[in-house]
Nucleic acid binder design. Structure first.
Lengths: 335, 335
DNA sequence: ATGAAAGCGCTAACAA
DNA sequence: TTGTTAGCGCTTTCAT
């Protein structure tokens, strides 16, 4: 049996209240302080935070719900977030829903039962109803990556459209006119935004939008590979390809390698979020990088503002962060 | 205010005991069942698992303590583990200690306070005392990757020495004699084991062990790069290099690329745990892969055996798993 | 099958 | 500064 405050009380002759107060940073007489410390040490006492939570009605726990844990995008954000939250005493319960909307809903319920004080979520289906209920119960929710339609909620988003515009603009300025894009699934927020950015750039540079050069993938390596391969094997392949997420960029690079194409001479390629891989690729890939650490940081900030009551009843806040352009030799002037 | 069982009691006229029993799968009259279900729905009731935990003395929570969350090695294991545990009602609180022994100890204390029912840990310093105390309190602990000296504890380990032996054997059989190894820090369990395997192989093939060809890194990309570069820039460079972890393999590949060396003609290279990267590298790297999913699975199994009391008082169990050899064109006969 | 009641370990009035 | 006490929401005997 683990020791409780009662045991300390018995050992020191003090009351529970005094001990509780001391444990929570209150002032007690030096003599008592010593006695308590001594008893704590002797008993190996540690607070039972379950009991504390029941009483204070704060679990000091934040739920984190993400599509998949094996993903630098998520883990980099979460690592930062976990650290910031830990610093002020919060635990993070992480749930991975394996890209499955049913699991998403199920695990959200699971977290809710756990009396989380706040939720950070990268939505897929979104679970609008459930999230709305959480917010009604004053439990702050912060979304990452994409908003949930019909839900007015704090969120940290990346300026996808702008980032996409800038990447494609570079290709256009390098003289490319047959610029293909490998997008994510239609209807997915980030995919739509990134496609808009692509179209914005073409329009801006007066390049005709050719639907044949717009390929819709599933944000996975497989489709990045297949779609790029299909583009490259055409009679008249594009001279440049812009790939709009991390996994698909893997696939695209694979297809390019397989065809022994030299970048940028035979093909210009711009990827997305490719920091790790980029350490070993030659030439280095030019990529649009999402500011992962900053996202984690901002999420923590938003959450804390709510938790500490500072932003108690403010309207939902959405923070838009800029992506970072990382240069590389994988794109260049049309030869 | 969230609804409680009391509210259901009031609404249905039943007692708390009856409701509790029903909620926990007990039998009640059909009429009462209906009434309760209806009340639950109407009130939007969900159990308060904090209160439940206080009463049952089981938090249904497993602590997970790892060196770093941005690491496929950890996340792949954890993703599997989280899933298995979730299926039987457990949450996982994940803590990342950023390779810092001070944080490791601190976060272990944090998890202990949280009344975790079990702990999964990839140790650095190990915190032997603290872990021993946990075990005294009958809280099962499962170690991953490396044991903690002087602590008799369940663990899931990889047969590092054997894997290393096999990899180096392939190089020897291909005719290489100047085989270098990039190891981890001396004294680190996995590093020592992998180095033993290397030496085993050389001895087995009657190749003289040359200390100059044994380079000690820090298991990070930087040292993989630097040490490989240093080896390759020698007057008489090795003809083959075996790199013994994931990060260092990144670095090594980078160094090879930078020198425009062709694999396997100008250099044979065998890496470690390089699944992701390998999708885009050409030639594909030959690598030793640790069976991550299987580790996660085995950890869950060990943990559950303890939690369900099946292995209540069994002696510590250590499971040794085989690494997987993944072929690739990065090594070949000495030319 | 159902109910009454005690209590898990802690905090927070309130009183002294 | 310290102590007394009620009670957070739930489970679990023990009666009924």
């Amino acid at each position: 049996m683990a020791a409780t405050m009662k045991d300390i009380a018995r050992l020191t002759g003090l009351s529970l209240a005094t001990i509780s107060k001391y444990l929570n940073g209150g002032h007690v007489l030096p003599a008592n302080q010593q006695a308590i410390d001594q008893a704590i040490h002797q008993l190996g006492y540690t607070v039972n935070s379950v009991a504390r939570s029941l009483k204070t009605r704060r679990s000091m726990t934040i739920g984190v719900l993400i599509p998949h844990l094996e993903n630098v995008f998520s883990t980099s954000i979460i690592s930062e977030l976990e650290d910031k939250l830990h610093q002020i005493g919060y635990s993070t319960i992480i749930c991975d829903y394996h890209h499955d909307p049913a699991l998403e809903a199920e695990k959200l319920g699971f977290l809710t039962d756990r009396q989380i004080d706040g939720l950070v979520m990268m939505p897929l289906s979104g679970c609008r109803e459930a999230l709305a209920k959480l917010k009604e119960r004053q439990i702050p929710v912060v979304l990452i990556d994409r908003p949930v339609e019909g839900l007015d909620c704090d969120a940290v988003l990346v300026k996808n459209r702008k980032a996409s515009f800038q990447a494609v603009s570079r290709l256009a300025e390098a003289g490319h006119e047959r610029i293909a894009v490998i997008c994510g699934p239609q209807g997915v927020y980030t995919a739509d935004e990134r496609l808009y950015g692509y179209k914005d750039a073409l329009t801006h540079y007066r390049i005709k939008i050719d639907e044949d050069l717009i390929q819709y993938g599933h944000y996975d390596t497989e489709s990045g590979y297949t779609l790029t391969a299909r583009l490259l094997d055409r009679q008249k392949p594009p001279t440049a390809v812009f790939v709009t997420n991390h996994e698909m960029t893997y696939g695209a690079v694979l297809a390019v390698h397989e065809r022994d194409l030299l970048m940028p001479d035979q093909l210009s390629l711009i990827g997305f979020d490719h920091q790790l891989l980029n350490q070993v690729l030659r030439p280095k890939l030019a990529v649009v990088m999402q500011p992962l650490k900053q996202i984690g940081h901002t999420v923590a900030e938003l959450l804390l503002n709510r938790l500490t009551g500072r932003d108690h009843q403010c309207p939902a806040q959405v923070r838009y962060l800029d992506a970072v352009w990382q240069n590389g030799g994988s794109y260049g002037p049309l030869s």
